[in-house]
Every structure is written in C-alpha cells, then in structure tokens.
Amino acid sequence: MIQQVKPEAFFDSLSLSHKLDNFLDGFKLEEVHLFAYFSSILFLYRGNAVSDWQYKFIVDENGYPFSNEINDAIVRHISNGLFEKVGQFYTISGRGSDEFNKFTTLPTFSKREEYLNAACTTSILIPYSQTQRALLNDSEISKAKNLQNQSWLDQSNIYEKFGEISKAVGINSNDLIIPAVTWINYLTKQPNQE
C-alpha cells in the first residue's frame, strides 16, 4: 500500500503554492521548499520547537532548501492534477485551490497559515527578486553550500538572530509580517555569504 504523505507537508505545499501562484503568477517547485523553510523559521521565531514543524530541510545541489516530505507532497499534487506545468513554471489548478480551501479550515492546518502567509506576503511588500536572493543568502544555507554536505539545516542560530533584529528595530507586535519583511531586509544587507 502506498504511504500517506505527511499531512503538514501536504497542506503546506498546497497553501504555499496557492499563495505564490496568486502573488507571483506561477511558481517553481524549489520555491515551495524555499518558502516552507522561511515559514519554519517564522515558526521558531514565535517560540515553537523546531520538531513541532514536523519536517526538516537539507540544501540541494542548486543551493535551495529541500525537504523530502515537501517533495513527496509535491509529487502527489502533480500526479493528482492539483499542480499544472505551464512552460518552466507551475500553477495551482482549480482542483488544487478547492483542496486548499477545504483543508485550510481544519484547526491543525489553520494554525500553520499564519506562518505560511507571512512568509509569502513578503514577496508583495518587497520586490520578489530581492526576497528570493535574500532567503538564499541565509547564513545556514550558505554554510551548507560551502561545506557541500547534506546534513539537516540548523535553524537555531537563525532564529536567535531573527529575534535580536526584530527587537532592535522596535517591533513589539504579535504579527509576523513585519518581522518577516525586516528579516529579508536584514539578509539583503548582508554581504554575499557564498
């Protein structure tokens, strides 16, 4: 019997694709991994345990974060017609949007929406090319790229730095969007770490 896809990865990939398609008019599969990774950092920033995110990341040969669980979910979405390929990009199909709308109401998943939404909203508030470049310039990703290893990305250092930056610019709100935007701006101003 075929194993079920991890529920959190199933939902996250659907939700991220729905948002990226809406905000950017199409997405690449590696961008789903990238924004899942960014969402998980926001999850840690909020004080949650990394294990509660339910899946982890390595860095793939192209320098993008990569999660096996997200990959399994994406493969399933493609074969079920929830994602459609248009040229070099993917879009979410009508059935994919229906699936997302159905699952987003479930309490287990709706809790994750805050992190997924904040991560993707940065791509509207900041030019997307800048957001993408900044996220790939994250110190943990750069370290893994330089070492060329496939160990799990250690997100604990990032989230501490994230907290320091947010505090320093005076963010005292519970909302995640401004910390997310500030983090992107911080990464943008870092020298290229490769």
Partner: peptide, 16 residues
C-alpha cells in the same frame, strides 16, 4: 544597520 532597517517603508508605516 538598524537605522537602515528601520527606514524601510513597512516599519515607517506601522511606526506612524
């Protein structure tokens, strides 16, 4: 650096 980050329009808007 912090001044630079605080100068982003999103921070200015919510600060206002």
């Amino acid at each position: 650096m912090i001044d630079n980050l605080s100068g982003h329009y999103t921070i200015k808007v919510i600060k206002a």
